[in-house]
Simulated assay, not measured.
Amino acid sequence: MKLLTFSTLFPNHERPGHGIFVETRLRHLVASGEVESRVVAPVPWFPLRHARFGSYGRFARVPAAEVRSGIQVLHPRYLLLPKVGMTPAPLLMARAMKPVLRKLIDEGFDFDAIDAHYFYPDGVAAMMLGKYFRKPVVITARGSDITLLPGYKWPGRMIRWAADNAAGVITVCAALREELLALGADPAKVVSLRNGVDLELFRPPLDRAALRKQLQMDGLTLLSVGNLVPVKGHELTIAALTELKEATLLIAGSGPELARLQALADQLQVAGRVRFLGPLPQATLRDYYGAADVMVLSSSREGWANVLLESMACGTPVAASKVWGTPEVVAHTDAGVLMQERSAAGIAAAVRALLAAGPERAATRRYAEGFSWDDTTAGQLRLFRDVIGKAG
């Protein structure tokens, strides 16, 4: 089967961790030997590459093409209008991608189906392209594209249109499937295929004591991983330190909230117990997972939080907020605990409960081993065979 994977959520040389869950799922799918893929990962056009232009400057530095894990990845540009970009984005993206897809077909990659990720604008644009090129489209819903964006009038209307016209829809958790059905999606077309975890990359350390010393960890150490944005709730985890007097918090990630979070730590007089690590490559992140005592995730929204499984695969249990797909990930005491309330006090209580329960790190690793990519890959193969067969 020849698949065109289409999403703005895909890693690139400039942002190697961006949408890495899409790349990981695709990598395992291609490894099955039954799928050949090309990736079109559109990038907003911007004329200047200088760092002073922030994220727009980074867009300009993304290469036009690269090869990742043996897969050819194209990063064609499309126009994204500042401030008003959300409404016309799907149409502008689709128009800019038509010649790109036409060239791929003319050069011999006449794909059988489009494998799109994130409903808006990516999935909507992919659906427009699918109709133009007469190719079936499968769209994967990943979180806020279903839990948040349908609340906006135009995106909501276009998301429903894309779901109605897609040949198939994948959700990364059962909770998102239920939400899609509530939006009117056809149950026969929507399948839940959760993300897996790379059990070879994420594994317990051979010498945890030596690793903790190397990473300067002493005493109870909490780890929080995620972009520094409001939805991740890092401010709640920092505030929980006022109750967890013995704990140190390490935060891995970057984003616009850094200065505000640093100021909050100062205000609460816990700055000496908070370390901002910045963005970390996965191999380095693995070491921090394995060395920490508890991984804390206090998000207000999550489709399927890969960081939870990554931490568990390294033997570290989690304390997580009870949102969307997270209860499906943290479904046993060996995995960790769910917060009874999403607050600083709720985080502190969850951490204490987890420490009191004391799951063995080996048991946490065994729990994570039940989330390999094998079942998800098999589910994708079944779906794409069916979709392509019906289209043929």
Rank of each mutant, 00 (worst) to 15 (best):
L4R: 03
S7H: 00
L9D: 07
F10N: 00
P11N: 02
R15V: 01
G17S: 12
V22L: 06
H28M: 07
V30P: 02
A31N: 09
S32F: 07
G33A: 09
V39N: 04
A41I: 01
P47E: 11
Y56R: 15
G57Q: 08
F59K: 03
A60I: 08
P63K: 14
P63R: 14
P63V: 13
A65H: 15
S69L: 14
Q72G: 14
V73Q: 02
V73H: 04
H75L: 09
P76I: 06
L79F: 12
L79S: 05
L80W: 08
K83S: 13
G85H: 14
G85M: 13
A89P: 07
A89F: 11
L92E: 02
L104R: 05
L104E: 12
D110T: 13
A113D: 04
I114D: 00
Y118T: 01
Y120I: 01
P121L: 01
V124K: 00
A125I: 00
A126E: 02
A126H: 00
L129A: 06
L129N: 00
G130M: 00
K131W: 10
V137L: 04
I139D: 01
D145Y: 03
I146G: 01
I146H: 02
G151Q: 12
W154R: 15
W154Q: 14
P155G: 11
R157S: 12
I159Q: 01
A162I: 05
D164R: 15
V169R: 07
V172Y: 06
V172H: 04
A175K: 11
G184R: 09
A185C: 13
P187I: 11
P187Y: 10
A188Q: 15
K189T: 11
V190G: 06
V190N: 08
N195K: 12
F202Q: 05
V229D: 00
P230R: 03
V231Y: 01
E235A: 13
L236G: 04
L236D: 03
I238M: 09
L241D: 04
T242V: 12
E243I: 06
E243M: 13
L244D: 01
L244R: 05
I251C: 00
A252C: 04
P256T: 02
L258M: 04
L258R: 10
Q262G: 03
A263Q: 10
L264F: 02
A265D: 03
Q267E: 14
Q267S: 11
F276M: 02
A283T: 15
A283C: 14
D287T: 12
Y289W: 13
L297R: 00
L297I: 02
S300E: 10
W304V: 02
N306D: 08
N306I: 06
L308V: 07
L309Q: 04
E310F: 08
S311Y: 03
A313Y: 00
A320H: 03
S321G: 05
S321M: 09
K322P: 05
K322F: 14
V323S: 07
V323F: 07
W324D: 13
D334R: 12
A345V: 12
I347W: 06
A348M: 08
A348W: 06
V351Y: 08
R352D: 10
L355D: 09
A356L: 13
R361K: 13
R365P: 04
A368K: 05
E369K: 09
S372F: 04
A378K: 14
G379M: 05
G379A: 07
G379I: 01
L381T: 09
R382A: 14
L383A: 10
L383C: 08
R385N: 15
R385Q: 15
D386K: 15
